[in-house]
């Protein structure tokens, strides 16, 4: 018997134009066309979307949670990247 397991695909749905695609869940499908249709049949039954991406789950590279501190914590003390860091004289507008 040949392998009958359909690979897993991650589904991303654009809720409406102007928004980015957002991860909605996954489906099993034997080919890309089937994955798009399964994503449509499973994740947009209630008008949830206007566009779909499907990506083979095996193609996704994720960051390692063990590296999370090294990767993300250094951003914490860069407060000068945020506009609220700066003092503006009172009464100055449009800045």
């Amino acid at each position: 018997m040949t392998n009958a397991n359909w690979p897993l695909w991650e589904v991303f749905v654009r809720a409406k134009n102007g928004l980015s695609h957002k991860h909605a869940g996954s489906v099993h499908a034997a080919d890309a066309r089937m994955a798009i249709e399964a994503a449509r049949d499973v994740y947009t039954r209630r008008m949830e979307g206007v566009s779909l991406w499907v990506v083979p789950s095996s193609a996704i590279v994720a960051s390692d949670p063990k590296e999370a501190a090294d990767l993300f914590e250094p951003a914490a003390d860069k407060v000068y990247r945020h506009p609220t860091f700066y003092t503006i004289p009172e009464g100055v507008k449009n800045i």
Partner: peptide, 11 residues
């Protein structure tokens, strides 16, 4: 034959 197909046929 598969859950995904079940949903498709129902649609």
């Amino acid at each position: 034959p598969m859950l995904e197909v079940d949903l498709a046929l129902a649609n």
